[in-house]
Computed example of a mutant assay.
Amino acid sequence: MKWTSALAIYFLFWSLSVFLVLPFGVRTTDEAGAARVPGQAESAPHEFRPGRIALRVTVVATVLFLLFQLNYIYGWITPQIIDRLIPAE
């Protein structure tokens, strides 16, 4: 696999991981015990820390990409295995 393809696939894993990581560890203003700003949504996070979220996303994306890369190299899950598990109609 070319390094440009690997980079593109890593970017896809990273952007998917954003949606996996974003809901975890979020506390609303009511849960934090602070007063809400007028017009603020009830579900809005009390503190938004983009650096911490980016670090978590990078860790999750790297682990997923490494699993993908190892599967690409060693062929643990192949299209033939998937065809056996889910037969075509």
Rank of each mutant, 00 (worst) to 15 (best):
P23K: 06
T58M: 02
I77G: 01
A8D: 10
P23N: 10
F48R: 13
N71L: 02
I82D: 07
I81Y: 09
P50C: 02
R49K: 15
T29Y: 02
V59D: 03
L20Q: 00
F68Y: 15
R56I: 01
A41E: 12
F13W: 04
I86A: 09
A8K: 13
R49N: 14
R49H: 14
A34P: 06
I77E: 03
P87K: 15
V63A: 10
A41I: 01
P50H: 13
S17P: 06
A32C: 11
L70I: 03
F11W: 12
S43W: 03
F13K: 02
G75T: 04
L12A: 09
R84G: 06
W3C: 06
T29A: 11
F11M: 11
F48W: 14
E31R: 09
G51S: 00
E47Q: 15
V21A: 07
A32T: 11
E42T: 02
V57Q: 07
A8N: 09
W3A: 12
E47L: 12
I9Q: 10
L16M: 12
F24Q: 12
L16P: 00
K2D: 15
V26A: 07
P50V: 08
L16T: 11
V59K: 02
S5D: 15
A41V: 01
P87W: 14
L7I: 06
P38A: 14
G75C: 13
Y10T: 00
G25D: 08
D30G: 03
Y10A: 03
G51D: 01
Y74K: 09
V37D: 05
H46Q: 15
G39C: 05
R52D: 09
P79C: 03
D83I: 00
P23T: 14
G39E: 08
R27F: 15
Y72Q: 10
K2G: 14
F24H: 01
G51Q: 06
V57E: 07
L12S: 15
F19G: 07
P45V: 05
V26L: 15
S17K: 05
I86F: 12
V21N: 10
A32Q: 11
F65P: 05
I81M: 12
I9K: 08
I81E: 09
A44S: 15
A41D: 13
L55F: 13
L16Q: 02
R84I: 00
A32V: 08
Q80I: 09
I9C: 10
G51T: 02
A41S: 13
I53P: 00
E42A: 13
L67A: 07
I81F: 09
F24P: 02
G33E: 02
A61E: 03
Q40V: 02
Q69M: 03
V57H: 04
F48E: 10
F13D: 00
F13A: 03
G51V: 01
T78W: 05
F65L: 08
R84T: 01
V37A: 07
G25Y: 02
A32R: 09
P50E: 14
P38I: 08
P87M: 10
T4A: 07
I86T: 14
V63W: 08
